[in-house]
């Protein structure tokens, strides 16, 4: 696991993404009031764990992995 990234952080990110249709990393960082550099790392781990995915609508966003 990357330094500074905890399971708790990742749960918070997933929980936030559950409340929106899509978001940018910075939206997540703002909502959780956590340093964006750490949020970026958490999101990278969640992507590798296949829990989130990326969509492109003129610009890129993340969302919860659609089943």
């Amino acid at each position: 696991m990357t330094e500074g990234v905890t399971e708790e952080l990742k749960d918070k990110i997933l929980k936030y993404l559950g409340t929106v249709s899509k978001a940018k990393n910075r939206d997540v960082a703002r909502a959780l009031e956590i340093d964006k550099a750490i949020v970026d790392k958490g999101i990278a781990e969640l992507a590798k764990e296949d829990k989130i995915e990326y969509i492109y609508l003129g610009t890129s966003y993340i969302q919860l992995k659609q089943k």
Binding site: A44, A47, K48, D50, E53, Y54, I55, S60, I62, Q66
Partner: peptide, 10 residues
């Protein structure tokens, strides 16, 4: 649609 490989958005 959403296409890609696991862990990547690009």
């Amino acid at each position: 649609g959403i296409v890609g490989v696991t862990g990547y958005g690009a």
